[in-house]
Amino acid sequence: MARAVTNNRKALNTAIAWSIGLIIFFPILWTILTSFKTEAQAISNPPVFLFFDWTLENYSVVQERSNYMRFLWNSVFIAGGSTVLGLIIAVPAAWSMAFVPSRRTKDILLWMLSTKMLPAVGVLYPIYLLFIKLGLLDTRIGLTIVLMLINLPIIVWMLYTYFREIPGEILEAARMDGASLKNEILYVLTPMAVPGIASTLLLNFILAWNEAFWTLNLTAAKAAPLTAFIASYSSPEGLFYAKLSAASTMAIAPILIMGWFSQKQLVRGLTFGAVK
């Protein structure tokens, strides 16, 4: 509903929107800035904004103390693995729901979503026990499976909404052209749904990356991802602002950078495919 307005009005809009945007973004900006300060400057009164002695010391201290790369690799493995695994299972299911709907399709979809409402803490101990029994505790595989399961409903839902935008006639055309079901999904549906699939992939990667209940409770040392890495700074190291900031920046940087480069898909993904 954007409309033509005068430049004055536009300038006013710009000023207001930028101020609000910067206020919302400020905590992140402040964290990144603080990570380059010395501890003394980090808590100086009055606070220094840009004019301080920039240093990389905090980063090397954090890396030395907690082996950042290992946590990072765990995060990448778990978030990536759970997303890809989820997509492989969800694509056929979403195809079925979108193109061969039955009276129960909507119920199944809502049921799937409702499993996400089950309070994780309610089943924490059983999962913990099962994980011990199966030898999955503190393993990347175990966490990958759990995160895949908790995000599966969202993946199915998103793919379903994207698939539904694809006209069924095109898939029927493929069928008339002699394509088998496998070829129909491989050569026609998937390429057409690439933007939607990319959005789904990105959003679920982020959700898995940031997940902080199972990752904190099912890992100890070996498989702990960045959420656990940062939680270890909760106290008393939290009082060292510069180091806390450096660790925080290292934990969120991969996602922020990824978000910057794939803005369009992410914005689309963030609406969970639910709103056009």
Partner: peptide
């Protein structure tokens, strides 16, 4: 028989072309 096996070709109202090809 499945559509593929009938040896018929169809032209759809919306043309149903593959937009990515």
């Amino acid at each position: 028989a499945s559509p593929a096996k009938r040896g018929l070709a169809m032209v759809f109202q919306s043309y149903a072309l593959y937009p990515h090809m």
